[in-house]
């Protein structure tokens, strides 16, 4: 009896153990399922985002015959590099690239400087008409860009700047968005910080340069990225402000490839892929800057 009882006790314990193990297994399975579901969802989103890009990449690596093959070849092997070679030899691609980079960089550098100075003035200097100026900038923000194209063209034209780099560089500088953005960033800086700087013997420009600029660095980087990509992508204004081949920018140049006797999709795709390179590099470099030292530590939290 005792032996049986004991064995049943042992059996019961084993049963319990088995149940417990089953339970953990069930839980583990559930967790895996949830995980799987999450990954499937993420995978779908990624696919939707990447697919068009991949399609263009594929097209750039196929000859004109293979592009229209059905079903499409998902891994063209060996890749066809002729499109890239054609872009470089048959079009003015490098010139377009230079124009875009030159204009975008100049605009970005000038505008980050001007916007942060304007933002500083709007946030910290008590001048007559400050409110009116700020209001005017807000109103300007609400005017759709398209409505400005014709008057802008006639203005630039009457200045004799059509078909010059200045036609591409000057108009974007007048956009008030950056200054408004910088004002918001600078408003967040404590007034005592400037007061301390003033007592330390800094003049207005030095306060801006040595105290404010380093502290709004994350804001400057954000603004720079916005401005640069904006210039990089801008199409309508460069299209109508320049007609000379020497001044054509990437967007306009790539779009013009359609005009050359029908569309060479391979050539077009290759030029599109190549024009992405600078933006990709820029993001890669600036990634780290987003983590710049923040305001933490200036004040008691």
């Amino acid at each position: 009896m005792a032996a049986i009882a004991e064995s049943s006790v042992v059996g019961g314990r084993q049963e319990l153990q088995r149940l417990a193990i089953d339970h953990t297994r069930v839980r583990a399975r559930q967790r895996r399922l949830r995980e799987l579901g999450r990954h499937v969802a993420l995978g779908l989103i990624t696919f939707v985002l990447v697919a068009p890009f991949y399609y263009v990449l594929l097209a750039s690596l196929k000859d004109s015959h293979a592009i229209f093959q059905y079903p499409p070849e998902l891994v063209p092997w060996p890749p066809f590099w002729g499109n890239y070679a054609n872009v470089l030899s048959h079009t003015n691609f490098l010139r377009w690239m230079f124009n875009t980079l030159f204009v975008a960089t100049t605009v970005t550098v000038l505008k980050v400087f001007l916007d942060s100075m304007a933002g500083y003035a709007l946030a910290k200097i008590d001048f007559t008409g400050r409110k009116a100026v700020f209001l005017l900038m807000l109103i300007l923000l609400m005017v759709p860009g398209g409505a400005l194209i014709v008057p802008l063209w006639s203005l630039v034209n009457s200045l004799g700047l059509i078909n010059t780099y200045l036609a591409l560089i000057l108009p974007p500088l007048a956009n008030p968005l950056g200054a408004i953005l910088m004002r918001q960033f600078i408003l967040g800086l404590p007034r005592d910080l400037e007061n301390a700087a003033r007592l330390d013997g800094l003049n207005e420009f030095q306060i801006y340069w040595r105290i404010v600029l380093p502290l709004i660095k994350p804001g400057l980087v954000v603004l720079a990225v916005i401005l640069f990509t904006d210039q990089f992508m801008s199409f309508i204004w460069p299209l109508i402000a320049t007609t000379s081949d020497d001044l054509i920018v990437l967007t306009v140049g790539v779009a013009s490839l359609r005009a050359h006797g029908g569309v060479d999709y391979g050539l077009w795709s290759a030029s599109a892929i190549m024009s992405l390179v600078p933006i990709a590099v820029l993001f890669f470099i600036l990634q780290r800057q987003f983590l710049a030292r923040s305001l933490a530590g200036a004040l008691k939290q």
């Binding site: 007061n195 003033r198 030292r293």
Partner: peptide, 20 residues
Amino acid sequence: LKPSARNVAMVFQNYALYPH
């Protein structure tokens, strides 16, 4: 006189140290 020319030094309530 400018603040810096007054030859006084100030300690602020929230310290106002330069964070950078």
